[in-house]
Design a protein around this nucleic acid. Structure first.
Lengths: 137, 137
DNA sequence: ATCATTGCAAACACTTTGCATACGC
DNA sequence: GCGTATGCAAAGTGTTTGCAATGAT
């Protein structure tokens, strides 16, 4: 897990234990966790962890470019640790969020109607593969 | 404004004054207002209006298919009264949300990787036309 | 010893809920 | 008069802030 420590240092974040653990959680759980997910996932092993620290850390990570916050799902902020451009799909049955790796050509052109596009968030909603199968029965 | 009254009735919503006014506000202000925007916009003329009523009404409208809630902007729910498929663009400078009428071909096909797509929310962010002009000075 | 990180508790913003009042038919 | 719409106040959620305690170098 030395890589994570280096990653923090590269982004000018002093690599405290808590921060490494939070980053590790994000790296392992590519499910776009909320602050609460991370807190609950880590507090078992780090009983002194507080939610404030999770929030502080996520804010710092975002500011320093390690994470991207994604919104539009259930009105909580979810965090993403992934550089490749992709689309999010959320299942309205089970709530799970899937990543769909696909590049959207339309946004290759960085101006639309005179507006300069800097980021795009594409959120699809529907019924996922698994839930479709279960429904057929 | 008779049309709005009829629209409510068609959607099985009894057309009280407050409800008509809220719908009228949405129809006039195609800026994806928040509940608070609507409240502040109307309370001048309807001093007895309460925020609870706005929330109740928006919920009812959404449930009965008059409105679509859009999320992903500043973590507030914004409401949209518009049937045509379009994209949202929010300026990170001035915060204004623009509608971009464009149909996204990629979602014409209703299955992606086995998932059934029912709705898509495309949120672009960047710097809008106006802010770009102001910046050049 | 100094400075940053941490964590509690309170504050905050947005939304929902419970319940009593008031209004429309 | 009955049933629904309304509105206040309180509760609920997710997040942020103030500040004191702790920890690292």
């Amino acid at each position: 897990m030395k890589k994570l420590k280096e990653l923090l240092v590269e982004h000018n974040i002093s690599p405290s234990l808590h921060r490494i653990k939070i980053l590790e959680y994000l790296a392992k759980h590519r499910i776009h966790p909320t602050a609460d997910d991370i807190y609950r996932g880590l507090v078992k092993n780090i009983p002194t962890l507080s939610k404030t620290t999770v929030y502080n850390t996520l804010k710092k990570f975002t500011k320093n470019g390690i994470l991207i916050p994604i919104t539009g799902f259930d009105n909580e902020i979810r965090y993403e640790y992934d550089k490749k451009p992709h689309i999010h799909f959320q299942c309205t049955r089970c709530g799970k969020i899937y990543d769909i790796e696909r590049d959207i050509d339309i946004f290759k052109n960085y101006y639309i109607e005179g507006h300069k596009i800097q980021e795009h968030h594409i959120n699809l909603k529907g019924i996922c593969k698994n839930c479709l199968v279960n429904e057929e029965r």
